[in-house]
Write a protein that binds this DNA or RNA. Structure first.
Length: 420
RNA sequence: GGAGAGCUGUCCGAGCGGCCGAUGGAGCUGGUCUUGAAAACCAGUGAAGUGAAAGCUUCCGUGGGUUCGAAUCCCACGCUCUCCGCCA
């Protein structure tokens, strides 16, 4: 949810943001009007309620003789207040409905436009050159017997797979490396629930834009999360947290579930786009004024991890139209995928400023002791998809794959995965 | 799945339908005392909305209801604990 004060004081700024996102600009005027209507209704209700409270007190204090007359008056007031209360709550709901549709106000520096209007921030590393025709990760997975897709689909359908042998160990090694790196940077490790209640899913904003993407267990009224961000954002819901010793940083590991509705036919080969994968996600709670600096740090940690895996990558500054509704700015790191001769997203880091925290009612106490809404940020540190880039970039002519040095300690010193 | 007990502020804990945003204690903050500390004593110490402000309104797990008036009575749900059952 956007800042109400900003909406009241500077609706034009909100409009400009909606425009940059290619989103509905008229929502802003609707919200301003709904807000004014709500405040009017609230004032009327509260004024009458004050009357009623006085009247009810008078009834209590009245002598038996006075009581009947006062009671009649109080009853009339009660009926009126009930109406006004209903009106005020309807106005509040109407306001919220519009308000919740308005997306986070984009930061300056975010490129305007859609998916293709990103700004290239940097390219890092050297793309590998092969003296042979490079194989794609699915083929490598088969040759090395580390990714078993036929059996995955046999037991669960398309977009499911087994990681096997060194493949399974490679993923765990990568997660361990990422977790160690995160811990060294001051993150607290969390293994999170992957089933959450509706209000958490809604609060984190995923029921809106991603509703079709989400698995839902009707019998239990629970949602399977597509990222541990949901649990990490919900972790401090309704809390006033202490940020006086710096940001709260969590590294959440979880399995992620995505229906991938609407992406039929896209990325059908291999494990680039699957229904179930694992992810280590960084999540920060910090002061609003530190959010942009924290965002840069998250990106730096992601780059550190990409470099540890010896992957060539580029960083892009996502355009406003391609931002999630909670994000005010987003950087993606994309690794080079030789078989596709292009970069593919491996990480994403979003600065949600106070937008997400306002929805989830998460605050901190400032130096004066007043509560204020905090800022939240998130960023990927490792996912199953990274295996695609690791396998393809480090492959050799015979189909073997050289394991990045940083991962070897987690694999008993193994240096190469070779075909059987 | 069944039976029972409970849910009140940072924590513990009291609370008769009106005098309860809420007694008491701990903690925390400030002060007195002290060379300093501890102890003792004194004072302060929830949040949200609205309003220029005074103020007003709301919040006792959540949502409904009864009532002129609900922390208190009724209903539903959530959660915690105990016992029984079941269990990859």
């Amino acid at each position: 949810m956007i800042d109400l004060n900003l909406l009241r004081d500077n609706p034009d700024a909100v409009k400009a943001s909606q425009r940059a996102r290619l989103a509905d600009e008229t929502l802003v005027d609707q919200a301003v009007a709904a807000d004014a209507a709500y405040r009017k209704a609230l004032a009327e209700f509260e004024q009458q309620r004050a009357e009623q409270n006085k009247s009810a007190k008078a009834v209590g204090a009245a002598s038996p003789e006075q009581r009947p007359a006062l009671l009649a008056e109080a009853q009339a007031l009660a009926a009126k207040v009930k109406e006004l209360e209903a009106a005020a709550s309807a106005a509040s709901e109407a306001r919220d409905q519009v308000l919740w549709k308005i997306e986070n106000v984009v930061l300056s520096g975010v490129p305007t436009g859609g998916e293709d209007d990103f700004e290239l921030v940097k390219e890092v590393g050297t793309k590998p050159t092969f003296a042979f025709e490079p194989r794609d990760h699915q083929e490598l997975g088969e040759i090395l017997d580390i990714i078993d897709i036929p059996r995955g689909t046999k037991i669960a359908g398309t977009r499911f797979y087994f990681l096997k042998g060194w493949g399974a160990r490679l993923e765990l090694a990568m997660m361990s490396l990422a977790l160690d790196q995160a811990a060294a940077a001051g993150f607290t490790a969390l293994i999170t629930p992957t089933l959450v209640r509706p209000e958490i899913m809604a609060g984190t904003g995923f029921l809106g834009e991603h509703a079709d993407e989400i698995y839902y267990l009707e019998k239990d009224d629970l949602y399977l999360t597509g990222t541990s961000e949901v649990a990490l954002a919900g972790y401090h819901r309704d809390e006033i947290v202490d940020l006086s010793h710096g940001p709260l940083r969590y590294a959440g590991w979880s399995t992620c579930y995505r229906r991938e509705a609407g992406s039929g036919g896209k990325d059908t080969r291999g494990i680039l786009r699957v229904h179930q994968f694992n992810k280590l996600e960084m999540f920060s709670y910090c002061l609003p004024e530190h959010a942009e600096a924290e965002h840069a740090k998250l990106l730096a940690w992601q780059e550190q991890m990409l470099q540890a895996c010896e992957l060539p990558y580029r960083v892009i500054n996502t355009a406003a139209g391609d931002l999630g509704s909670s994000a005010a700015a987003k950087f993606d790191a994309e690794a080079w995928v030789p078989s596709q001769n292009t970069y593919r997203e491996l990480t994403s880091t979003s600065n949600c400023t106070t937008f997400q925290a306002r929805r989830l009612n998460m605050r901190y106490r400032n130096e004066a002791g007043k509560t204020e809404t905090l800022a939240t940020l998130n960023g990927t540190l490792a996912t199953t998809r990274w295996l695609v880039a690791i396998l393809e970039n480090h492959q050799q002519a015979d189909g073997s794959v050289v394991i990045p040095k940083a991962l070897r300690p987690y694999l008993g010193g193994q240096e190469v995965i070779s075909p059987k």
